[in-house]
Simulated assay, not measured.
Amino acid sequence: MGREQYNMKITRIEVIPLVRKLNQTFEGGTYRIVNRNTLVTRIYTDEGLVGEVFGGDEDIVQEKIVGLIQDHFEPMLIGEDPRNIELLWNKMFFDGGKIDLGNRSIHVLDLLNRGILMQAISAIDMALWDLLGKIYNTPLYQLLGGYRKKVPVIAIGGYYQAGKGRSQLTDEMQHYKELGMTGVKFKVGRVTVAEDIKRVQAAREAAGDDFVIVCDANQGWTPDQAIQFCQEAVSLDLEWIEEPVRWYDQLEGLRMVKDSSPIPVTAGQGEISGFGCRDLVLNGCVDNLNVDVTIAGGVTEWKRTANMASLSHVQMAHHEEPQVALHLLAAVPNSLYVEIFPNYERDPMWIDLPIETYRIKDGFMELPNKPGLGMELNKDIIEKYRAI
Protein backbone atom coordinates (compact mmCIF):
# COMPACT_ATOMS: atom_id res chain seq x y z
CA MET A 1 0.00 0.00 0.00
CA GLY A 2 1.46 3.40 -1.01
CA ARG A 3 1.80 6.20 1.49
CA GLU A 4 -0.77 8.23 -0.41
CA GLN A 5 -3.47 5.62 0.39
CA TYR A 6 -3.58 6.00 4.16
CA ASN A 7 -3.14 8.56 6.87
CA MET A 8 0.32 9.19 8.25
CA LYS A 9 0.31 10.66 11.74
CA ILE A 10 2.42 13.11 13.66
CA THR A 11 3.41 11.43 16.92
CA ARG A 12 5.69 14.03 18.52
CA ILE A 13 7.09 17.52 18.02
CA GLU A 14 10.43 18.40 19.61
CA VAL A 15 11.89 21.89 19.80
CA ILE A 16 15.39 22.49 21.17
CA PRO A 17 16.63 26.03 21.86
CA LEU A 18 20.36 26.53 21.28
CA VAL A 19 22.25 29.41 22.89
CA ARG A 20 25.82 30.33 21.94
CA LYS A 21 27.82 33.36 23.05
CA LEU A 22 29.93 34.91 20.29
CA ASN A 23 33.60 35.59 20.88
CA GLN A 24 33.30 39.14 19.56
CA THR A 25 30.65 41.80 18.99
CA PHE A 26 29.36 42.68 15.53
CA GLU A 27 27.72 46.05 14.86
CA GLY A 28 25.43 47.03 11.99
CA GLY A 29 23.59 50.26 11.37
CA THR A 30 21.33 50.07 14.42
CA TYR A 31 22.20 46.93 16.36
CA ARG A 32 24.86 44.84 18.12
CA ILE A 33 25.09 41.05 17.88
CA VAL A 34 26.65 39.18 20.82
CA ASN A 35 24.92 35.76 20.61
CA ARG A 36 24.08 33.19 17.95
CA ASN A 37 20.91 31.49 19.12
CA THR A 38 18.70 29.21 17.05
CA LEU A 39 15.98 26.57 17.33
CA VAL A 40 16.17 22.94 16.21
CA THR A 41 12.69 21.59 15.44
CA ARG A 42 11.87 17.93 14.82
CA ILE A 43 8.58 16.37 13.78
CA TYR A 44 8.21 12.62 14.32
CA THR A 45 5.74 10.32 12.55
CA ASP A 46 4.29 6.84 13.03
CA GLU A 47 6.20 5.81 9.87
CA GLY A 48 9.55 6.54 11.51
CA LEU A 49 10.33 9.52 9.27
CA VAL A 50 11.49 12.71 10.99
CA GLY A 51 11.47 16.27 9.67
CA GLU A 52 14.33 18.32 11.11
CA VAL A 53 15.43 21.93 10.66
CA PHE A 54 17.34 24.65 12.43
CA GLY A 55 16.41 28.29 12.03
CA GLY A 56 15.89 31.62 13.70
CA ASP A 57 18.19 33.91 15.64
CA GLU A 58 16.06 34.99 18.59
CA ASP A 59 17.70 36.40 21.73
CA ILE A 60 14.84 37.86 23.72
CA VAL A 61 11.76 35.63 23.44
CA GLN A 62 13.26 32.25 22.56
CA GLU A 63 11.77 30.61 25.68
CA LYS A 64 8.28 31.88 24.82
CA ILE A 65 8.50 30.46 21.28
CA VAL A 66 9.53 27.10 22.70
CA GLY A 67 6.72 27.22 25.26
CA LEU A 68 4.10 28.02 22.63
CA ILE A 69 5.18 25.03 20.55
CA GLN A 70 5.34 22.65 23.50
CA ASP A 71 2.19 23.75 25.31
CA HIS A 72 -0.12 24.50 22.38
CA PHE A 73 1.06 23.50 18.92
CA GLU A 74 2.28 20.00 19.73
CA PRO A 75 -1.06 18.98 21.33
CA MET A 76 -2.87 20.68 18.43
CA LEU A 77 -1.00 18.73 15.75
CA ILE A 78 -0.49 15.28 17.31
CA GLY A 79 -2.42 12.74 15.22
CA GLU A 80 -2.63 14.98 12.17
CA ASP A 81 -1.36 13.92 8.75
CA PRO A 82 1.85 15.93 8.15
CA ARG A 83 1.21 16.01 4.41
CA ASN A 84 -1.73 18.38 4.90
CA ILE A 85 0.54 21.37 5.35
CA GLU A 86 -1.95 24.06 4.32
CA LEU A 87 -4.50 22.67 6.78
CA LEU A 88 -1.96 22.56 9.60
CA TRP A 89 -0.68 26.06 8.82
CA ASN A 90 -4.20 27.46 8.98
CA LYS A 91 -4.89 25.69 12.26
CA MET A 92 -1.78 27.21 13.81
CA PHE A 93 -2.40 30.68 12.38
CA PHE A 94 -6.13 31.04 13.06
CA ASP A 95 -6.59 28.81 16.12
CA GLY A 96 -3.17 29.82 17.45
CA GLY A 97 -4.20 33.44 17.15
CA LYS A 98 -6.76 32.78 19.89
CA ILE A 99 -4.14 31.60 22.39
CA ASP A 100 -3.79 34.00 25.32
CA LEU A 101 -0.24 35.35 25.16
CA GLY A 102 -1.12 38.38 27.24
CA ASN A 103 -2.49 40.43 24.34
CA ARG A 104 -4.11 43.79 25.09
CA SER A 105 -6.07 44.25 21.84
CA ILE A 106 -3.75 47.16 21.04
CA HIS A 107 -2.35 45.81 17.83
CA VAL A 108 1.01 47.59 17.83
CA LEU A 109 1.75 46.62 21.43
CA ASP A 110 0.62 43.07 20.67
CA LEU A 111 3.05 42.70 17.76
CA LEU A 112 5.66 41.14 20.05
CA ASN A 113 3.24 38.32 20.84
CA ARG A 114 2.28 38.03 17.17
CA GLY A 115 5.98 37.72 16.38
CA ILE A 116 6.27 34.87 18.89
CA LEU A 117 3.29 33.17 17.23
CA MET A 118 4.71 33.54 13.72
CA GLN A 119 8.17 32.30 14.70
CA ALA A 120 6.62 29.24 16.32
CA ILE A 121 4.56 28.57 13.17
CA SER A 122 7.70 29.07 11.09
CA ALA A 123 9.69 26.49 13.03
CA ILE A 124 7.02 23.81 12.69
CA ASP A 125 6.20 24.62 9.07
CA MET A 126 9.86 24.38 7.99
CA ALA A 127 10.21 21.00 9.70
CA LEU A 128 6.99 19.83 8.00
CA TRP A 129 8.38 20.72 4.58
CA ASP A 130 11.63 18.88 5.30
CA LEU A 131 9.51 15.89 6.33
CA LEU A 132 7.40 16.16 3.17
CA GLY A 133 10.54 15.99 1.05
CA LYS A 134 11.60 12.86 2.90
CA ILE A 135 8.17 11.28 2.48
CA TYR A 136 8.33 11.75 -1.29
CA ASN A 137 12.12 11.32 -1.55
CA THR A 138 12.46 14.73 -3.22
CA PRO A 139 14.63 17.80 -2.47
CA LEU A 140 12.59 20.65 -1.07
CA TYR A 141 13.37 23.07 -3.91
CA GLN A 142 11.93 20.61 -6.44
CA LEU A 143 8.89 19.97 -4.28
CA LEU A 144 8.27 23.73 -4.36
CA GLY A 145 8.71 24.12 -8.11
CA GLY A 146 12.36 23.54 -8.97
CA TYR A 147 13.37 26.55 -11.07
CA ARG A 148 17.19 26.38 -10.77
CA LYS A 149 19.89 24.07 -9.37
CA LYS A 150 22.20 26.75 -8.00
CA VAL A 151 21.81 30.26 -6.61
CA PRO A 152 24.41 33.06 -6.56
CA VAL A 153 25.78 33.57 -3.05
CA ILE A 154 26.87 36.77 -1.31
CA ALA A 155 28.72 37.30 1.97
CA ILE A 156 27.29 39.39 4.81
CA GLY A 157 30.05 41.70 5.99
CA GLY A 158 31.34 45.24 6.16
CA TYR A 159 30.59 45.39 9.87
CA TYR A 160 31.68 48.34 11.97
CA GLN A 161 34.56 47.46 14.30
CA ALA A 162 37.01 49.56 16.28
CA GLY A 163 40.20 50.11 14.32
CA LYS A 164 38.72 48.82 11.08
CA GLY A 165 39.89 51.14 8.31
CA ARG A 166 40.47 51.06 4.58
CA SER A 167 43.20 48.43 4.75
CA GLN A 168 41.03 46.04 6.74
CA LEU A 169 38.08 46.58 4.40
CA THR A 170 40.33 45.81 1.42
CA ASP A 171 41.50 42.57 3.05
CA GLU A 172 37.90 41.62 3.85
CA MET A 173 36.70 42.10 0.28
CA GLN A 174 39.64 40.14 -1.11
CA HIS A 175 38.90 37.33 1.32
CA TYR A 176 35.30 37.07 0.10
CA LYS A 177 36.49 36.88 -3.49
CA GLU A 178 38.94 34.14 -2.57
CA LEU A 179 36.09 32.19 -0.97
CA GLY A 180 34.18 32.28 -4.25
CA MET A 181 31.49 34.77 -3.25
CA THR A 182 29.56 36.59 -5.97
CA GLY A 183 29.39 39.68 -3.80
CA VAL A 184 28.84 41.20 -0.37
CA LYS A 185 26.05 42.70 1.68
CA PHE A 186 27.83 45.68 3.24
CA LYS A 187 26.70 47.35 6.48
CA VAL A 188 25.95 51.09 6.45
CA GLY A 189 23.85 53.48 8.55
CA ARG A 190 25.84 53.79 11.80
CA VAL A 191 28.06 56.75 10.82
CA THR A 192 27.42 59.82 8.65
CA VAL A 193 26.36 59.40 5.04
CA ALA A 194 29.67 60.89 3.90
CA GLU A 195 31.66 58.40 5.98
CA ASP A 196 29.60 55.48 4.70
CA ILE A 197 30.13 56.57 1.09
CA LYS A 198 33.90 56.47 1.70
CA ARG A 199 33.63 52.99 3.26
CA VAL A 200 31.62 51.61 0.33
CA GLN A 201 33.96 53.32 -2.12
CA ALA A 202 36.89 51.51 -0.50
CA ALA A 203 35.03 48.21 -0.79
CA ARG A 204 34.27 48.80 -4.48
CA GLU A 205 37.89 49.70 -5.26
CA ALA A 206 39.11 46.60 -3.43
CA ALA A 207 36.59 44.19 -4.96
CA GLY A 208 36.54 45.46 -8.53
CA ASP A 209 33.68 46.12 -10.92
CA ASP A 210 32.66 42.46 -11.32
CA PHE A 211 31.75 42.02 -7.64
CA VAL A 212 28.17 42.54 -6.44
CA ILE A 213 27.76 45.04 -3.59
CA VAL A 214 24.47 45.62 -1.80
CA CYS A 215 24.21 47.95 1.19
CA ASP A 216 22.17 47.33 4.33
CA ALA A 217 21.30 50.28 6.59
CA ASN A 218 19.23 48.24 9.08
CA GLN A 219 16.60 51.00 9.29
CA GLY A 220 19.22 53.59 10.22
CA TRP A 221 18.23 56.66 8.18
CA THR A 222 15.55 59.23 7.60
CA PRO A 223 14.18 59.24 4.03
CA ASP A 224 16.28 62.31 3.20
CA GLN A 225 19.47 60.64 4.45
CA ALA A 226 18.67 57.46 2.51
CA ILE A 227 18.01 59.42 -0.68
CA GLN A 228 21.23 61.36 -0.19
CA PHE A 229 23.20 58.13 0.19
CA CYS A 230 21.64 56.57 -2.91
CA GLN A 231 22.25 59.64 -5.06
CA GLU A 232 25.87 59.99 -3.93
CA ALA A 233 26.53 56.25 -4.31
CA VAL A 234 25.16 55.95 -7.83
CA SER A 235 28.64 55.64 -9.38
CA LEU A 236 29.47 52.72 -7.07
CA ASP A 237 27.12 50.39 -8.96
CA LEU A 238 25.19 49.05 -5.97
CA GLU A 239 22.71 46.25 -6.55
CA TRP A 240 20.29 47.54 -3.91
CA ILE A 241 19.90 49.52 -0.70
CA GLU A 242 18.33 47.44 2.07
CA GLU A 243 16.10 48.55 4.97
CA PRO A 244 17.08 52.22 4.47
CA VAL A 245 14.53 54.01 6.69
CA ARG A 246 13.64 53.92 10.35
CA TRP A 247 11.12 51.57 11.87
CA TYR A 248 8.29 54.12 12.13
CA ASP A 249 8.36 55.10 8.44
CA GLN A 250 8.16 51.77 6.67
CA LEU A 251 5.46 52.68 4.15
CA GLU A 252 5.64 56.35 3.18
CA GLY A 253 9.35 56.65 3.98
CA LEU A 254 10.27 53.62 1.88
CA ARG A 255 8.04 54.82 -0.95
CA MET A 256 9.80 58.21 -0.92
CA VAL A 257 13.20 56.52 -1.15
CA LYS A 258 12.09 54.16 -3.91
CA ASP A 259 10.61 57.04 -5.95
CA SER A 260 13.78 59.15 -5.65
CA SER A 261 16.56 56.57 -5.58
CA PRO A 262 18.59 55.46 -8.62
CA ILE A 263 19.32 52.28 -6.62
CA PRO A 264 16.67 49.55 -6.11
CA VAL A 265 15.14 49.30 -2.61
CA THR A 266 14.94 46.06 -0.62
CA ALA A 267 12.91 45.56 2.58
CA GLY A 268 10.66 43.04 4.29
CA GLN A 269 12.88 41.22 6.78
CA GLY A 270 11.02 42.93 9.60
CA GLU A 271 7.61 41.74 8.41
CA ILE A 272 6.03 38.82 10.26
CA SER A 273 3.49 37.79 7.62
CA GLY A 274 2.68 37.88 3.95
CA PHE A 275 0.16 40.61 4.71
CA GLY A 276 2.92 43.02 5.71
CA CYS A 277 4.84 42.15 2.55
CA ARG A 278 1.68 42.69 0.50
CA ASP A 279 1.41 46.21 1.91
CA LEU A 280 5.01 47.00 0.98
CA VAL A 281 4.36 45.85 -2.59
CA LEU A 282 0.96 47.50 -3.08
CA ASN A 283 2.19 50.80 -1.67
CA GLY A 284 5.10 50.89 -4.10
CA CYS A 285 7.73 50.69 -1.35
CA VAL A 286 10.10 48.02 -2.68
CA ASP A 287 11.79 46.60 -5.72
CA ASN A 288 12.81 43.49 -3.78
CA LEU A 289 11.45 41.66 -0.73
CA ASN A 290 13.81 39.95 1.73
CA VAL A 291 11.21 38.42 4.03
CA ASP A 292 12.65 35.80 6.42
CA VAL A 293 11.21 32.26 6.38
CA THR A 294 12.08 31.78 10.07
CA ILE A 295 10.13 34.88 11.14
CA ALA A 296 7.16 35.25 8.81
CA GLY A 297 5.31 31.95 8.81
CA GLY A 298 7.69 29.42 7.32
CA VAL A 299 7.95 27.93 3.85
CA THR A 300 4.20 27.98 3.24
CA GLU A 301 3.83 31.73 3.78
CA TRP A 302 7.13 32.55 2.04
CA LYS A 303 6.03 30.78 -1.14
CA ARG A 304 2.67 32.60 -1.08
CA THR A 305 4.54 35.88 -0.70
CA ALA A 306 6.94 35.11 -3.56
CA ASN A 307 4.04 34.30 -5.88
CA MET A 308 2.27 37.53 -4.90
CA ALA A 309 5.44 39.55 -5.45
CA SER A 310 6.00 38.10 -8.91
CA LEU A 311 2.67 39.50 -10.09
CA SER A 312 3.97 43.00 -9.29
CA HIS A 313 7.43 42.36 -10.79
CA VAL A 314 9.04 42.39 -7.35
CA GLN A 315 12.10 40.19 -6.84
CA MET A 316 12.77 37.92 -3.86
CA ALA A 317 15.88 38.06 -1.72
CA HIS A 318 16.13 36.47 1.73
CA HIS A 319 17.36 37.56 5.15
CA GLU A 320 20.13 35.13 6.19
CA GLU A 321 19.18 31.48 7.03
CA PRO A 322 20.78 29.84 3.94
CA GLN A 323 19.92 26.31 5.13
CA VAL A 324 16.31 26.97 4.09
CA ALA A 325 16.62 30.09 1.93
CA LEU A 326 18.66 28.25 -0.71
CA HIS A 327 15.74 25.94 -1.48
CA LEU A 328 13.20 28.78 -1.54
CA LEU A 329 15.25 30.96 -3.88
CA ALA A 330 15.89 28.00 -6.18
CA ALA A 331 12.18 27.25 -6.41
CA VAL A 332 10.97 30.56 -7.88
CA PRO A 333 11.93 32.52 -11.03
CA ASN A 334 11.89 35.95 -9.30
CA SER A 335 14.81 35.32 -6.93
CA LEU A 336 18.14 37.04 -6.34
CA TYR A 337 20.95 35.96 -3.96
CA VAL A 338 21.33 33.61 -1.03
CA GLU A 339 23.45 35.11 1.73
CA ILE A 340 25.83 33.64 4.31
CA PHE A 341 28.20 34.73 7.06
CA PRO A 342 31.60 33.47 5.88
CA ASN A 343 33.15 34.75 9.12
CA TYR A 344 33.03 31.84 11.56
CA GLU A 345 33.02 34.26 14.50
CA ARG A 346 29.77 35.84 13.28
CA ASP A 347 27.85 32.60 12.65
CA PRO A 348 29.59 29.52 14.08
CA MET A 349 26.31 27.59 13.95
CA TRP A 350 26.30 27.69 10.11
CA ILE A 351 29.64 25.87 10.15
CA ASP A 352 29.28 23.62 13.21
CA LEU A 353 25.61 22.59 13.24
CA PRO A 354 25.28 20.88 9.81
CA ILE A 355 27.26 17.69 9.26
CA GLU A 356 27.94 19.15 5.83
CA THR A 357 27.04 22.61 4.49
CA TYR A 358 25.88 23.23 0.93
CA ARG A 359 28.62 23.36 -1.69
CA ILE A 360 29.80 26.74 -3.03
CA LYS A 361 31.50 26.89 -6.42
CA ASP A 362 32.24 29.77 -8.81
CA GLY A 363 30.04 32.24 -6.97
CA PHE A 364 27.04 29.91 -6.60
CA MET A 365 25.62 27.77 -3.83
CA GLU A 366 24.54 24.41 -5.23
CA LEU A 367 21.37 22.56 -4.29
CA PRO A 368 21.74 19.14 -2.64
CA ASN A 369 20.14 16.11 -4.30
CA LYS A 370 19.02 14.61 -0.98
CA PRO A 371 15.37 14.56 0.18
CA GLY A 372 13.93 17.54 2.03
CA LEU A 373 16.46 20.15 3.03
CA GLY A 374 19.26 17.64 2.46
CA MET A 375 21.05 18.72 5.64
CA GLU A 376 21.80 16.40 8.55
CA LEU A 377 22.49 18.13 11.87
CA ASN A 378 25.32 17.40 14.30
CA LYS A 379 23.81 15.89 17.43
CA ASP A 380 26.93 16.65 19.50
CA ILE A 381 26.67 20.37 18.70
CA ILE A 382 22.96 20.32 19.58
CA GLU A 383 23.69 18.75 22.95
CA LYS A 384 26.59 21.12 23.62
CA TYR A 385 24.57 24.32 23.14
CA ARG A 386 21.03 23.29 24.08
CA ALA A 387 19.48 25.59 26.64
CA ILE A 388 17.05 23.01 28.07
Rank of each mutant, 00 (worst) to 15 (best):
G284C: 00
C285R: 03
V286I: 11
V286H: 09
V286N: 06
D287Q: 08
D287Y: 06
N288Y: 14
L289I: 12
L289F: 04
N290S: 08
N290W: 09
D292M: 09
D292Q: 09
V293S: 01
T294W: 00
T294A: 14
T294L: 05
I295M: 03
A296C: 14
G297E: 01
G297F: 01
G298W: 04
V299C: 02
V299H: 04
T300Q: 14
T300R: 06
E301F: 02
E301D: 07
W302T: 00
R304G: 04
T305R: 08
T305M: 08
A306E: 11
N307A: 15
N307M: 15
N307H: 13
N307P: 07
M308D: 11
A309Y: 12
A309I: 01
S310E: 12
L311F: 07
L311E: 12
L311T: 15
S312R: 04
H313E: 02
Q315M: 11
Q315S: 12
M316L: 07
M316H: 09
M316G: 12
A317D: 15
A317V: 11
E320V: 09
E320M: 13
E320R: 11
E320A: 11
P322T: 05
P322H: 10
Q323Y: 04
V324D: 01
A325D: 10
L328V: 12
L328S: 14
A331H: 04
A331I: 06
V332S: 07
P333N: 05
P333Q: 04
